[in-house]
Amino acid sequence: MSAALAALRQGLPIPIPGIFDVHGHLGRYGFAIPGTDPPLLVGQMDRLGVARIAVSHMHCMKWDWESLVWGHDRVREAMERHPGRILGYFSVLPDDGARIRGEAQQRLGEGFRGIKLHNGNGYAYDHPGFEPLWAIAHERGLPVLFHTWGGPELDQIGALAARWPGMRAIAAHAGSQNVEAYLRLAQAHPNVFLDTCLSKSPRGLVERLVKGAGAHKILWGSDAHFFSLSHQLGKAIASDLTEEELEALLSGNAQRVFGGPAISFR
């Protein structure tokens, strides 16, 4: 039994340094989520041994700038309260190029580390109004976390990744459906990565992603505060991976994508 699985069974911090969750959220949503205060999230990270989480606000799904900006401010506050533990994604709408550039400049200056886009707000990722955003992501080598569900958005992301090779695209909820399309996307583009968060946690999916796309292309994401960190971490640790594959999934790959050195908070 691996040391990580032994720790999981006992509810102890996972003994892998720098565990990095690339898919988190702050704030309320339409259904009830208990305990959404950032300190509670960080407390849970401590119990699990998770060093960092990159979050967007739930308002990343909104379709007006005021709501997005309000959410960015809440993320900034959490980043300031938990430096190095909570990293920020910001979001934009494709209707105002100048505002995209202005918001990106402000948020990157505040220390935000990436971009989160959710097409549930009615804007497809190939909307021409996003062009200024892609230029910034390419130039700065930023991670861009895309909400996906196995549909035509995967082709849109592939086209963007090819045009903007400096961007580091992360397709969320990999394998939600159409697993082979996710694998083809990650195989075709060196700057496309897949994240693992899914509530149903299908047995064998993590292994299939790792074996199919390559252990260096899969990132661990929890989708907290929607899902529990512990549920999504348990899924990864109990998967049939080598210790090297598990460390890459939970820590090393994200450190590389986010461009930071390996860290441990303990």
Partner: peptide
Amino acid sequence: GFPEAEAGAALGYLAYAD
């Protein structure tokens, strides 16, 4: 939820519950 689901997910959910 085994075998549809990876059993370790539920195990982690309970093991780390505060």
